[in-house]
Design a protein around this nucleic acid. Structure first.
Lengths: 190, 190
DNA sequence: GTCTATACCAAGATAGAC
DNA sequence: GTCTATCTTGGTATAGAC
């Protein structure tokens, strides 16, 4: 029993994963969501841009919660990061290399063209950085170092997703996960 | 005295940097290049997709040559990587955050939708990986380790570009450059 | 709040004169 | 090989009945 709004947001997120922002038409959204054209403008009067902002913020939060869950289960942050990469790699393989962060897919498309969406992606990235950075600080890393390391980790994740989708292989992504894990371990032990 | 073909490719590359593949229209290309519509189809009978493939391959090669030049000047590969990140960060700031790798901009847009362009991005990434990996091997790192590290470096570069454009700040990119440099130093010293 | 029809415009691509 | 005019399609967005 999902609401029309939820179906529209979910369908847009899925399409963003495989086609990005400019590559996704609202017609495709309505078809996948099983909703009429008018519903998009009923729930999102600002049209495509407002819909996209909602998709970015909501799926960004979902990924953050996923990370928090993995971090809670893993005990220490270094192995948690490794587990996050492994889980993402598995998900990619299982979905023929499309089930991947829609935020990163859209971020470079809109950074210079849609200011409201650029801001939405930054807000999401900052939320992730706070989440990861907090865990790093809890492991004994100084605040400014933790912040920088968190940003590097996010860079490696998003860049790793890019290479994995291009190569249609997760080998590099898994190796990058191991590199990130060792980087975190080194930062904690110093 | 640039040829029409060169102007078209250059204009498309610039537009890809700020708007990506789907966000760039052929009309914009002709306007920026000062060329008529027909010229695009004269030089690139395959239309937008063939033009894009040429842009990706040619600018990919240009970045590879830029890296080789920096690596030659820097002496050791670890400081070369740091210099590459710093140079990219400077270029970003000087151009209001648009002068950035068009390949990475386009890669995630086309990976699941335009097979010929996906292949073009992979070829470019492999060229970079060989270039960086060769330098790492020359510094004494084993072949398979060098290959994996090269891919992680490329991930960090492309992901770092993404965050820098979203944040409109190069602080994170510079910090990531330092992290990459230390990762390379650690790999060499073991 | 749901749905259909449609307005309006920009996209990629093509034809054919020069 | 250059350029203009145009075809066709598909895009976003809106109007208005129900």
């Amino acid at each position: 029993m999902t609401s029309t709004r939820e179906r529209i947001v979910a369908a847009t997120g899925e399409l963003f994963r495989s086609q990005g922002f400019n590559g996704t038409s609202l017609k495709q959204v309505t078809e996948h969501a099983g909703a009429p054209t008018g519903s998009i403008y009923h729930f999102f009067p600002g049209g495509k841009e407002e819909l996209a902002a909602a998709v970015l913020r909501e799926s960004g939060l979902a990924y953050q919660q996923l990370f928090e869950m993995i971090a809670d289960e893993s005990g220490d942050i270094a192995t948690a990061m490794g587990a996050f990469f492994t889980g993402a790699a598995d998900a990619l393989e299982e979905t023929d290399f499309i089930d991947i962060c829609p935020i990163g897919n859209v971020a470079r498309e809109v950074a210079s063209t849609h200011e409201s969406l650029r801001v939405a992606t930054v807000d999401v990235f900052n939320g992730w950085a706070n989440s990861i950075g907090g865990r790093l600080q809890a492991a004994g890393i100084a605040e400014s170092d933790a912040e920088e390391l968190a940003n590097t980790i996010i860079s490696a994740i998003e860049g790793g997703f890019m290479l994995a989708r291009a190569h249609r292989s997760t080998d590099g992504l898994r190796a990058t996960g191991a590199h990130v894990q060792s980087l975190v371990e080194a930062a904690i032990s110093t």
